[in-house]
Design a protein around this nucleic acid. Sequence first.
RNA 1: GUGCCUGUAGCUCAACGGCAGAGCGCCACACUGUGGAUGUGGAUGUUGUGGGUUCGAAACCCAUCAGGCACCCCA
Length: 425
Amino acid sequence: MAKTLIQSIKGTREFYPEEMALRNFINDKVRNASQQFGYQEWDAPFIETIDLYAAKSGEELVKEQSFVFSDRGGDLVTLRPELTPSLARMIAARQGQLAFPVRWWSFGPFWRYERPQKGRSREFFQWNVDMLGVNSPEADAELVAIGATFLKSVGLTPDQAKIFVNNRRLMDAQFDRLGIAPENRLAVSNMVDRRPKMEPAKWDAYVLDGGLSQAQLDGLKQVLGNYDLWKENEELVRLFGALDALGVSAYVQFDPNIMRGLLYYTGTVFEAFDLTGGVRRAILGGGRYDNLLADVGGDPLSGVGFAMGDVVIGIILQEKGLVPTFEPSPAPVLVTVFDDALWRDSYALAAELRAVGLAVTSYPEPARLVKQFKYGDKMGMKVAVVCGPDELAAGKVAVKDLRNGAQQIVARTDAARVIREILAG
RNA sequence: GUGCCUGUAGCUCAACGGCAGAGCGCCACACUGUGGAUGUGGAUGUUGUGGGUUCGAAACCCAUCAGGCACCCCA
């Protein structure tokens, strides 16, 4: 009775086999892209003390958007809302012994206590990729290239998804030029972030209301519309040169509107968007950070990295039909069970076929063959094997190609070979 | 955390104050040694949950839970 089922927790997702297939598909593509570039897989605890996040992340993340509870000893623990603080700690703990540059990637679960909606759940998976110990535009380019490689590998074209790149130091210089005080950079960055969501006239008023002069507003709009601005910045020139060499230029574009807020990033920033919908959905985002280890007590170390949640990309892949067809049964072969007298022979046959490397499902009880074939059909199995009284007496089995209905009676010892031929064809 | 919209059969939805229905799916049979097709028949509901209004509630009101949209946030 559906009415009496206890509900799953708000904002969590249940993975039925077909959804698990999508999750595994994303996981596979993430792993491939990471390992192609030589990154090592790693992970951190799923629960951490609240102190780990309080140091760096800011109040809102911990106070409002994390699952926090006290354990039986009375300590406050947090379901990790992000990976970076754990990364910082683990790097700092072995700072003297790691081979830099460290290239690490991870794909695991995270929790944020937010109001769920489409593309945002309270429990999700996130792909993290980081390179630490080198500060160069070429290193930044490598991270962007990994993101681009992933987008390409799942079948998204540069028309459908693109990574937009900016540089915080470049923007800071522009802000300085406009007479915007350093302490107002964050506020202005937030204004820029909000711009796509507002009507132009309203945004103008909002910015003027926020303390900028008309001249500053005009200058700001000029900066945000200047897509050649990168040519004035040596870091970005080198970055785009490296991206060209890496062969991913089609997926990358300079955009002075990319801010990714926060005091967090110090140089290159980038963000990938789905370009096909009405609203640009962020697929992944990242950038360069210089102060990663300071907060956890390590020596200064520069790094660059990005993160991608599984929810938005999963929706996009489904919308675009880029998810491979779901195969309900991992085993393509069904061994039917004829009747009570013969189930033992069917089970033995199934075991023989497994012993030579075939993935085989056997029907778990004697039943009418109609029912068993229907089951095989629904489970997407490709071959059915029947071992009835006639076949058994002759030392043979019936092998049927479920896709076209063709059936052949073959010697039991030839069954595996015939099945392989059908599967290959 | 704020505002708005939506919850009816396994799924998609109808009924919009007066007997809770359709399509798809499911099950059975036609067809007890052969699936996908077709036909015939069949089962399935405390209308998310709890309260209230009413002669009468799936419908109206309140609360609550869940989902969606926008805000917020996007570490």
